[in-house]
Simulated scan of single mutants.
Amino acid sequence: MSEKPRLPPLNALRVFHVVARHKSFRQAADELLVTPQAVGLQIKLLEDALQVTLFERKGRAIELTESAILLSHFVNAGFEEFAEGIRRVTKSAYRDRINLNASPYFATRYLLPRLSLFREILPRADLRLTTIVDLPDFGRDDIDMAVQWGYGNWPEFDTKLLVRDPKIICCSPTIGEQIKSPQDLTRFTLLDPVKSNRLWPDILRHLSVEQTHSDRSIGFDDAATMRRAARQGIGIGLVSVIDAEEDLRSGALVAPVGRDALADMKPEEVPGFYLVVPKGHLRVTAVATFHRWLCQQEWQSDLKIPDLPKPAPLSG
């Protein structure tokens, strides 16, 4: 493991932060209540520590070098983080703020109907909800915790499975009429969750389907778009049980290999929604309370299996 670089003096970074914003040693000195010479000494100290040139003089003006422009992005983000930390420590309104990022599907289907229950536990909490599909950068995006779809492979974080997300293989009735055995699935475009490159391979292996090397798939970021594509006959989708219930009942989709075909897949092969939290974030009381509440919910009770007649056995 490589050693972390030794950080230069914080005061030198602070002076650089102000100089980069003003693009002037004199204006930076006025803000910092020091002399321009003192500002220049701190910049020289920083340049010596980093072994790079940060500013170039153009007459009376200065210009940031490429290194300075790059460094300023990270230094600015760092001082914004410092400011946010101070606000949270000194102001109760910020101490009770909880920034949650949740998978759009989990937020819509599971979380939103239950949020009023959490209000009864922590009524003063200022809950901010975002729905970014990717796992956020917790520091840069100012996120306290996330509910992420996947298989729980985030060893650097505190990870807790909230609910499994089993799938039903679904397609339009027109495509369904052409599927006589599981092997026929590979004749059509497979609608793939782009965040997982293993779901379809695991499913085909579970069904004992011989897999080809040709890529006949389309990836989707969100479940709603995949579901619409399946309904429009673009290909064969992997639809969550709650959505499949609606579309199987209405006849918009059919389950060509049976709705229970994936019911006995290995637990580790079934994706789910995981609560992902940087370990240090649980030291904040409001965040820890919300984390505990999420873990105590019986999310599985919301999962209804459609009561539909079983299809005739497939040949082959």
Rank of each mutant, 00 (worst) to 15 (best):
K91P: 05
D243V: 04
T285K: 10
T53Q: 15
W299Y: 11
D141M: 00
F273Y: 14
E80Y: 02
R198P: 08
E66Q: 06
I69H: 07
Y151A: 03
I203K: 00
A107S: 12
Y274A: 01
L135G: 10
A224V: 05
D48R: 15
L112H: 03
K4L: 14
R205P: 12
V276R: 05
I86C: 02
Q296F: 13
Q232L: 15
N11Y: 15
S301F: 01
G280D: 08
T174S: 13
V133R: 01
F79K: 04
D30E: 12
P166Y: 12
H291Q: 10
G152W: 12
W154N: 03
E156L: 13
K279C: 04
S315P: 04
T186F: 02
L204S: 07
V287H: 12
Q232A: 06
F118S: 00
R249D: 04
G139S: 03
D247Q: 03
M265W: 11
R140W: 07
F273K: 08
D243C: 11
G150R: 12
L162F: 10
K310Y: 02
N76H: 15
R87Y: 03
H291F: 00
L50P: 02
R227K: 14
Q300V: 13
I169W: 01
I236E: 05
T174I: 14
D302G: 08
V133P: 06
L64V: 04
L303K: 04
D144P: 05
D202A: 04
A28S: 11
F157Q: 12
A286R: 13
E156N: 05
R26L: 00
Q211I: 14
S103V: 06
C295I: 04
E210S: 08
R6V: 15
T130L: 02
H17S: 09
N76F: 12
N76E: 15
R205V: 11
V163T: 15
L117T: 06
R60E: 11
S103E: 02
R198V: 05
L129Q: 11
E56W: 11
R114I: 04
Q232P: 06
G176P: 05
L50I: 04
E210F: 08
D247T: 07
E3C: 05
T53W: 08
G40D: 01
